[in-house]
Amino acid sequence: MARKTAADKLEELRKKREELDARIQAVSTRQKNEQRKADTRRKVIAGALALEHLEKNSESDFAKQLVRLLDEYVIRPHDRELFPQLPEVMPTNNQPSP
């Protein structure tokens, strides 16, 4: 069996590095996706909890503050439709379009 030349060894090492880089990238991407899913799930659970409290305790300070915040920050008509407790907003020149 012929001995590998320095160029062959170098090429072999480069291929191994490329394979490792691809594996590292795949694991990194998988980890980022898992973190993003966990973050989304956390937000859904917290939002559901807040809305549940709003429905059951609509006169509490928290519920009033939540409605005020929703009214202030949920400005697109399409989004506001999701919150029947909010008044309709008439479009103005300074609001972003949907």
Results as ranks from 00 to 15, higher is better:
1 M>H: 10
2 A>E: 05
4 K>T: 07
5 T>Y: 04
6 A>N: 05
7 A>F: 06
7 A>Y: 07
12 E>M: 09
12 E>T: 09
12 E>Y: 08
13 L>K: 15
14 R>G: 01
14 R>Q: 07
17 R>H: 13
21 D>M: 11
24 I>A: 12
26 A>P: 02
26 A>G: 03
26 A>N: 07
27 V>C: 05
28 S>I: 05
29 T>N: 09
31 Q>G: 02
31 Q>V: 05
32 K>R: 11
33 N>P: 03
35 Q>H: 14
36 R>P: 06
37 K>A: 15
38 A>E: 15
40 T>R: 10
40 T>H: 13
41 R>V: 03
42 R>I: 09
42 R>H: 14
44 V>H: 14
46 A>E: 15
47 G>N: 15
47 G>L: 12
50 A>W: 06
50 A>R: 10
52 E>V: 02
53 H>F: 10
54 L>G: 00
54 L>F: 07
55 E>N: 15
55 E>Y: 15
56 K>Q: 08
57 N>L: 03
59 E>H: 07
60 S>D: 13
63 A>G: 01
64 K>S: 05
65 Q>C: 03
66 L>T: 00
66 L>H: 01
67 V>T: 04
68 R>Y: 01
68 R>M: 00
69 L>H: 05
71 D>F: 01
72 E>I: 02
72 E>N: 08
72 E>Y: 03
73 Y>E: 03
73 Y>T: 00
74 V>N: 01
77 P>L: 04
79 D>Y: 04
80 R>M: 04
81 E>T: 10
81 E>M: 06
83 F>T: 05
84 P>A: 07
84 P>N: 04
85 Q>L: 12
88 E>G: 03
91 P>F: 04
92 T>V: 07
94 N>S: 05
95 Q>A: 00
95 Q>I: 03
97 S>F: 12
98 P>D: 14
